[in-house]
Every structure is written in C-alpha cells, then in structure tokens.
Simulated assay, not measured.
Amino acid sequence: MGIHLDRARAHFGRDTTGMLEGGRYSLVHTRSLEFDDLRPYVSGDDVRDIEWKASARSGNVLIKRFVSEKHHKILVVADAGRNMSATTPTGELKRDVAANLAGAMGLITVRRSDEIGMVFGDRRGSVDIRLRRGETHIEYMLHRFQEHATTGPSMSHVGTQLDWVARHYRHPLVIFVVSDEPDVDDRLHDVLTRLTGRHDVMWAMVSDAPAAGSIEDDRNGFDVGDGGFVLSDDLGADVIDAYRRAEVERRQHLSEFMTAHGVPHAMVRGSLAIRNAMLSMTGTYARAG
C-alpha cells in the first residue's frame, strides 16, 4: 500500500467484514471472483466449479465455493477547503482526519472489489476523479486530495461539491461525504433532497476544536483565517457557558437534520474514532437496505 492508505489502515485496521453489506443500490452477483474454500459436491451444483485436482487427491468430488457479494459504486465527496486546515479536538489537522476517513472507505472497497471515485474541492469548484478499483487508484485519490487541501485552498463550501455531484452523477451511487460540520440552510436541504432521492448518502463530519477551552482542555480555539482566538476568557464565564450550550444545540439540530433526510452520519473527533464511526454509519446503511 501507499503512504496514505498505510496511514488510514494504522487507525482503521484491516478487518472490513460486514461493512457495506446491503443498501438500495447494490449490484447483486451470485458469486464473485474471490475464492473462499472447498466443499463437497451436492446435486444441483455447477459442474464447472468442480476442483478436479483437489477431488483426485481427496477421493471425493469437491467444489469451489466463492464469496457471495454485493458490489457498489462509491463516491467520496470531500471538503478540501480552508476549513480543513483547522484542528480537531485531538489536535490533529482536520484534513488529515478527512484523508484517513476517505482511506478507510477505500480499504473497505479493496476487499470487496467495489469501484470508488472522489469529488473534492472548495468554494471555487470541484475536482472529479472517476470511479476505478484498486489500491493504486485509491492512493492517487488521497494524494490529490491532500495536495489540494495543503496548497492554498479557498474557502470551504461542501455544498459546491454536492451540487456538482447532483448535476453530473445520474446513476445510483453510495455517496460518502467527508467535511466539517456544515451549516443547516435551505441550500443544504435542497441538495440533500436531490441526492438522497437517487443515491445512498453517508456523512462523516470532522469536529472542530472547541472555540472555548473545556474542563479537560483549557486551550481556546482560534480562527484558521487570521490565527486569532475565537473566544477569550476575558468575556466571562456566563458568555463561555452560553457558547457551550449553543454548540450542543447546534450539533443536535444538525443530527436531527441528517436523520430527517435519512443520512447515516457521525461526528469524528480524531483518527482514533474512525473505526467506530465507520461501523456506526455502515451498520445503519446495511439495516436500511
């Protein structure tokens, strides 16, 4: 694997069993090209699947068993704008966590032989990497994403990328959105309505470090635009407490908005939370299929 996939695997692990099973838009195959094991032949089996050499050695007629799979076409839609230069509550750069999330989805597709592509960008527009299979292709996607996110990105606006997908991708897909926590507004409502009418959508939201320090961490957050602190202790305890309550309410409203649109979602505080987030989202996805 390449450097980006290796980094994702270090946080996500190797086991992808059961992930992305089901869903509305699977291409069902009675068998895949992935060999599983051998078993005794029974009446009704396809004689083309008999393993003649193993049968001769064992003295019994043995048949190849293949993994039964549902294959998907998966599109990662990622914010590569300036917001992803901020830090998470764990101190990581958001773009690194986002790349690890996209890499985790790539790792899931490798074992399943799913096709995967990527649309990323900022307010200026979108880069569209078409669907392919394999580790080399996924590593290329992740490299292009990181290159964009680290070399003078413009303001973030993931709605720009979602609108691009809604206008250019007509065939049903599994869409995996990776961004910061979006603002709930009419434009987001409209584009999600269009997307969920045709595609399966999941959304991983990389959390910002809090603007005001918490009990566990008393560091105040700063704006990635000018480096200035967002909230200062000089504002007083009442203002800080009001901010924290507003943040809880905002996140609750965002979660309810996603649920109302039928979008499995997760807030991801850092790379160590990626595996549980992916299990949560893909589990909800499978039950919805």
Rank of each mutant, 00 (worst) to 15 (best):
G2F: 07
L5E: 06
H11S: 14
H11K: 09
G13E: 10
R14W: 07
M19W: 14
E21K: 09
R24V: 14
S26K: 00
R31M: 03
S32V: 06
D37P: 02
V42T: 00
S43K: 02
D45F: 05
V47S: 04
R48K: 14
R48M: 01
K53E: 09
A56S: 08
A56I: 04
I63P: 01
F66A: 09
V67T: 14
E69L: 15
I74T: 15
A80E: 04
R82I: 06
T88A: 13
G91A: 13
A99V: 12
M105Q: 14
R111K: 11
G117H: 02
F120I: 00
R124A: 00
G125Q: 01
S126Y: 00
R132Q: 15
R133P: 12
E135H: 10
E135F: 09
Y140P: 08
Y140M: 15
M141C: 05
M141R: 01
L142D: 05
E147M: 04
T150I: 11
T151R: 14
G152V: 03
S156G: 02
H157L: 06
H157Q: 09
G159T: 00
V165R: 00
H171Y: 13
I175F: 09
V177A: 05
S179M: 00
E181Y: 02
R187L: 11
H189Q: 15
L195Y: 10
L195C: 08
G197I: 02
H199Q: 12
D200S: 13
W203M: 03
P210M: 01
A212K: 05
S214D: 06
D223W: 03
L231Q: 01
L235C: 01
V239F: 07
I240H: 00
E247T: 10
E247K: 07
V248M: 14
E249A: 12
R251Q: 15
M258F: 08
M258Y: 05
A260W: 03
H261N: 07
H265Q: 07
M267G: 11
V268H: 04
G270S: 12
A273P: 11
N276I: 11
A277D: 09
T282P: 13
T282L: 07
G283E: 11
G283F: 12
G283M: 07
R287D: 07
G289P: 02
